[in-house]
Nucleic acid binder design. Structure first.
Lengths: 209, 209
DNA sequence: GGCGAAACGGAACCCGGTTCCATAAGTCGT
DNA sequence: ACGACTTATGGAACCGGGTTCCGTTTCGCC
């Protein structure tokens, strides 16, 4: 099953070079089609764009989700690496978290339909889901933990939970300019904040008359 | 546009009584199937359950979304009516908003796949979308406005925006017990709170106490 | 150059929404 | 009560879109 599951990114060399070539052609074609038609583009379109048969796609990527994962693997990596970097470079852990989430939102909203694809439990999309979860959640958790440890946010929400929330909020952003996922994500993250000691500079809000 | 705009629920009297009867049978069957198989259940299943042909469904409900709307119309109404009631009975507008949102979340999470269906812009689901938007958004906006006027929340987010956010957060709740949309929605709504001017919230002061 | 293995292409299949139309059933005038 | 007309019904057929299958082609190695 997992010919692509090598520990390093270097998969074992495929014996035939047309295989390697085709795989690359496919990845390029898929990336191109994803940009123009979104992640939900028909497999046939990608095959056509790549100039290969449908069977070839399925040989390389057992399901569309695998193809999506492959195409975006690099960017997921980037996002993963950004976590610790932000933690090191930001004044507060909360800051780092905020910016990392922003990065993630950027990633999602710039790929048409990616967020939507992520929540399709149906189909064979568990691969996609799993890949994102596996790689991104630990980073998110780390940031969350750091902010919690610093007393900057309320605890009680896990990295997975937060990621899913953010991912969900990003669904449908591209088809509707009036929908601004970033604003909502900002709200969500703001909700995480723990007013240090709820000292209640409260002003107007929380006091019940 | 106008078909949904009837003052009363009474549509013009259907001439033939089998029509009325079948429509009701269909609604019942659909409701039953939705409960067991979720909102995304195949139209054929609903037809089978109702003991009618597929054509009959489409005669009554041009698209699946219309059927969904019809089935849930009553509960949407209930939600709509709850808005002003909460506003009247809650100590603060923010409280009312919080509880209304909670009601809405309840509604969404108890209907398998409804939230997901709501965001499918594809297909003929704009009817569904539109119905929810038309009826629920004004209520939400009202609550939001009241809370804003009372200086209890930051302004800058619209009713539509908030509803979409909440709806999105509720997607996928039913297939995954580890996902708790309510917690995230709570966070989101908490983020709405405006701590007058603590932290980096610079300037503006549109709160005017 | 020839041979076996691996890859390829794309027709075929499955599934689900939607359309269409011949047929059945209801309604109404007489 | 009956026939003509109107409207509703059932379900086969159609349209994508994902996925599978297999005869054919190509590759790599002797």
């Amino acid at each position: 099953m997992s010919d692509s599951r090598q520990g390093t990114e270097k998969a074992a060399a495929p014996q035939r070079k047309d295989v390697r070539r085709n795989k690359q052609i496919l990845l390029d074609a898929a990336a191109a089609v994803f940009v123009t038609s979104g992640v939900e583009a028909p497999v046939r379109d990608i095959a056509a764009r790549a100039g290969v048969g449908i069977g070839t796609i399925y040989r390389h990527f057992p399901t569309r989700a695998d193809l999506i994962v492959a195409v975006f693997r690099h960017q997921v990596e980037t996002c993963v690496e950004a976590g610790p970097a932000l933690l090191a470079s930001c004044p507060t852990a909360y800051d780092a978290l905020e910016r990392w989430i922003d990065l993630f939102v950027d990633f999602l909203v710039t790929k048409h339909g990616l967020a939507a694809a992520l929540q399709h439990d149906n189909a064979g999309f568990e691969t996609l889901h799993a890949h994102f979860i596996d790689h991104l959640v630990p980073v998110c958790t780390q940031l969350l933990d750091a902010a919690t440890a610093a007393g900057e946010i309320r605890s009680g929400i896990g990295g997975l939970q937060l990621m899913r929330g953010v991912g969900n909020l990003c669904v449908g952003a591209e088809n509707d300019p009036s929908y601004d996922p970033r604003a909502l994500v900002t709200l969500l993250v703001a909700g995480l904040r723990q007013p240090h000691r709820s000292g209640s500079e409260s002003g107007a809000a929380d006091g019940e008359p």
